[in-house]
């Protein structure tokens, strides 16, 4: 079996991951690293993403008797993989199966930052929105209705000022609830136009048979429609990794029959 950079990375994380693995995503310049540093303190180390010139940081903290591993993903504007950074972020959120993903957004430019958050929520329901730099939003006389935002998105929304350590306890608590108390999240789904929605419908069923719950079939169907070759290769690697053997062959054959 082919060993990909992602796989090597996942094995590395697996070594001492503690009780849960949390991914930290966000646009550049949102204070994501400040959030990471404030949460983990000195318990962190950086390294290279195997096979790619992308740097990542891993750290840990303890909250309510649980050891949490935090993976600081490279800053990305989207998960549509326009760059190596974005690809790494996407692959980890999608195939790394973190127990939850925290998306750090800049309160002063919420609109642009929400693009990423919506895309993360499309992959995994286990998403928490950390709205950072609310002090600057206040300075710019912007008022943000956080509870309405949480309602609209269907995921927890935590306002923070990471560099002054404001709101970080709330963030830890929210992570704890989502991961250990199985707080039920129903994130808002991005609705596309009719043409795309019906196209998704056409292939989603077969995708579901193939991925068998190991990936979000709607999301995979969208990527297949989009035709992005990097993601298709990763999906293939992932499926091979998930269940080698008979099960997979049987399901794959069923797909062949259905499509034929």
């Amino acid at each position: 079996m082919q060993v990909t950079g992602l796989q090597e990375f996942l094995e590395r994380i697996e070594e001492n991951k503690g009780d849960a693995v949390i991914a930290l995503a966000g646009n550049p310049n949102t204070g994501k690293s400040t959030v990471f540093n404030s949460l983990t303190g000195l318990n962190q180390h950086t390294g290279n993403w195997p096979g790619k010139t992308v740097v990542f940081a891993k750290g840990s903290y303890r909250y309510k008797k649980k050891n949490i591993t935090l993976v600081d993903l490279p800053g990305a504007y989207s998960l549509l993989a326009n760059s190596a950074d974005e690809q790494v972020a996407r692959d980890f959120i999608c195939f790394g199966k973190p127990d939850a993903t925290v998306v750090v957004v800049d309160a002063t430019c919420l609109e642009r930052n929400l693009n990423l958050a919506l895309q993360v929520m499309e992959i995994t329901p286990q998403t928490i929105l950390c709205v950072n730099l609310i002090d600057e939003a206040k300075r710019k006389k912007m008022a943000i209705d956080f509870s309405k935002l949480a309602d609209l998105l269907g995921v927890p929304v935590i306002p923070t000022v990471a560099r002054d350590k404001v709101g970080l306890l709330d963030l830890k608590e929210s992570i704890h609830r989502v991961v250990f108390e199985k707080q039920l999240l129903q994130p808002r789904r991005i609705v596309y136009n009719k043409v795309i929605e019906s196209a998704i419908e056409k292939i989603q069923e077969e995708v579901e048979v193939l991925v068998h719950g190991s990936l979000n079939s709607r999301w995979v169907a969208l990527r297949l429609l989009d035709g992005d070759p990097t993601i298709i290769r990763e999906i293939f690697n992932h499926l091979q990794r998930m269940d080698p053997g008979d099960q997979q062959s049987k399901r794959a054959l069923k797909v062949v029959e259905d499509c034929g």
């Binding site: 292939i203 077969e206 995708v207 193939l210 297949l224 298709i232 999906i235 293939f236 499926l239 091979q240 997979q248 062959s249 399901r251 794959a252 054959l253 797909v255 062949v256 499509c259 034929g260």
Partner: peptide
Amino acid sequence: SLEVGLNQILS
């Protein structure tokens, strides 16, 4: 067979 299945969906 996995590749066959994936290719089918892809096409």
